[in-house]
């Protein structure tokens, strides 16, 4: 561990995966989606994961994001072993430390833009008045104007929806943002626009960003890269 720290100029370790394996069971068939993954990510890193379709990127993101538990190995998040936690404890970790940006935007259609952004604060038990102020701040950071706050997700563009998703990811001061193909549904102009917001957040707020993408142009925004192939990390 100390060696790793030194390699990165003494930064704090945020994520440490030790021999992580993931086996999906469908009926009698076992599918090994991840095999012996070892990975260390430091605070403030902008990290990209690339790889072919079906290689195990999303599986890895789900484990890193505490949405799923690995079938073997240990996962230390900010020094805490989270591979043994139960559903509610994982929910609390996601709420406090992790923000998600998904390919499909994943905003709740029945809620307005600002209500979507308030959601993590709602589950953190933060009073409504305070939550509104913080949600507005987060929205300003990704250049969503006040006059669009009360729109519903289907009343704003795809690029704007994805920025709202970023606002939701950072509103509760998450230390890590997990973005699984966030530009997958955007054209190249919107893609680089969106990526510039990730970059801004990474630089200004020192938020660790883990980005899964197919596109080298998008991956180029990251400072560190890994490639996953058949459930292994092949290149660092």
């Amino acid at each position: 561990m100390n060696d790793l720290k030194k390699n990165n100029g003494g930064g704090d370790i945020v994520i440490n995966l030790e021999h992580i394996g993931m086996i999906y069971k469908t009926g009698s068939i076992n599918y090994e989606a991840l095999k012996d993954i070892n990975l260390t990510i430091y605070k403030g890193e902008f990290f990209s994961i690339m790889g072919a379709s079906g290689s195990g990127k999303s599986t890895m993101m789900n484990i890193l994001g505490c949405l799923d538990k690995p079938t073997s190995g240990k996962y230390f998040l900010e020094g805490m072993d989270v591979s043994k936690l139960d559903k509610d404890q994982l929910a609390e970790i996601r709420n406090k430390k992790i923000g998600f940006v998904f390919q499909g935007f994943n905003l709740i259609q029945r809620l307005s833009v600002i209500e979507n952004v308030e959601l993590p604060l709602f589950y953190a038990g933060i009073p409504h008045k305070e939550a509104v102020i913080e949600a507005k701040d987060a929205l300003r950071l990704v250049d969503i104007d006040e006059n669009k706050e009360n729109n519903f997700p289907n009343q704003i563009s795809g690029g704007e929806q994805q920025r709202v998703a970023i606002a939701r990811a950072i509103v509760h001061n998450a230390s890590i943002i997990m973005a699984d193909e966030p530009t997958g549904n955007l054209d190249s102009v919107r893609s680089s626009e969106l990526m510039s917001f990730f970059k801004k957040i990474n630089e200004e707020r020192n938020v660790t960003i883990i980005l899964v993408t197919h596109e080298p142009v998008v991956a180029a925004f990251a400072k560190k890269h890994i490639i996953v192939k058949d459930g292994h990390i092949v290149n660092d």
Binding site: G65, L67, K87, D88, A91, E92, R94, N95, K96, F100, N106, L107, I108, Q109, R110, L119, P120, Y123, A124, R168, H172
Partner: peptide, 16 residues
């Protein structure tokens, strides 16, 4: 279902 998934992703517990 999707909405429930999103709520869980941002920190909703079972009881919520």
């Amino acid at each position: 279902t999707k909405e429930i998934g999103i709520r869980m992703a941002v920190g909703a517990k079972k009881n919520d």
